[in-house]
């Protein structure tokens, strides 16, 4: 079991190195990378914005309920901002990314494998790692922090909507306390996390698709594995990074 896991991690690592050897596609084929940023990022915007709004609204409600017990409801802006920037933004976005863009990447590459499109490229002396996998991996990595940023902005709007507009927290206190308490390190923590989640989720998605069994059941299984592994990996990496940042 442990041996299998280690061997699998090794294979994924080698795969990552093989793909990153083609990282030059960012410069040689920028249109392909931009197209993948659009696929993974822009096409996930609606679900990210919708979920960001609801998460922010819940944060506003729960935060207000908790803080008003201590007479500190003015600190709602700080609580919402730190919660979103450091944790909820990157984590929830990564989970949504795995479900929306990750599954799409896996099934697309898996179907290309099942319908011999990847083999056809290899026969045409075109490396599918360069033509198919690298632009999708890099596109996913770039898209994730951008999606997290959008999620955070919409989440803060949702928290403000509930906290200020509905529950009556003072507008000035909400924004000024946030501005005073949130530091650049807090923002950086979220950026680092979103980048790491982007690498993990995109890598899992393209790896599972590339190595999917070339059958309908195989592609289905690979898609399921993408969601499960990406989600677990996101939470595991989140713990490790949080511990690392707090222990600094």
């Amino acid at each position: 079991m442990i041996g299998d896991t280690l061997s699998r991690i090794g294979r994924v690592g080698i795969f990552l190195v093989r793909v990153l050897r083609h990282a030059g596609v960012v410069f040689t084929e920028p249109r392909a990378v931009v197209h993948q940023i659009y696929n993974a990022g822009a096409r996930s915007l609606v679900i990210i914005m919708l979920c960001g709004l609801f998460v922010g609204m819940v944060l506003g409600l729960q935060g207000y309920d908790l803080l008003q017990r201590f007479g500190s409801e003015d600190a709602l802006g700080v609580a919402a901002a730190l919660g979103l920037l450091k944790e909820l933004g990157p984590v929830v976005t990564a989970l949504l990314f795995a479900g929306r863009a990750g599954t799409s990447l896996t099934s697309e590459i898996g179907l290309m494998r099942a319908t011999d499109q990847l083999t056809a490229m290899e026969i045409m002396a075109v490396d599918p790692l360069r033509k198919v996998v690298a632009p999708r991996l890099i596109g996913g990595i770039i898209a994730m922090p951008l999606l997290v940023a959008v999620f955070n902005v919409i989440g803060l709007f949702g928290a403000q909507l509930i906290g200020v507009q509905v529950m009556g927290v003072d507008t000035g206190a909400f924004w000024s306390q946030m501005q005073g308490a949130v530091e650049l390190d807090d923002v950086n923590e979220g950026i680092v996390k979103s980048f790491c989640f982007g690498v993990a989720c995109s890598l899992v998605a393209v790896y599972e698709g590339y190595h999917a069994q070339p059958t309908a059941a195989g592609v289905g299984l690979a898609t399921t594995r993408t969601v499960v592994i990406s989600s677990v990996l996101t939470l595991l990496i989140d713990y490790i990074l949080t511990a690392a940042f707090l222990g600094r």
Binding site: T115, D116, Q117, A120, M121, I123, M124
Partner: peptide
């Protein structure tokens, strides 16, 4: 070597 070859696949294998 493959640059000197062409191959027709059973299902065509066109890039969809």
């Amino acid at each position: 070597l493959r640059r000197r070859m062409g191959m027709l696949f059973q299902n065509g294998a066109l890039l969809t």
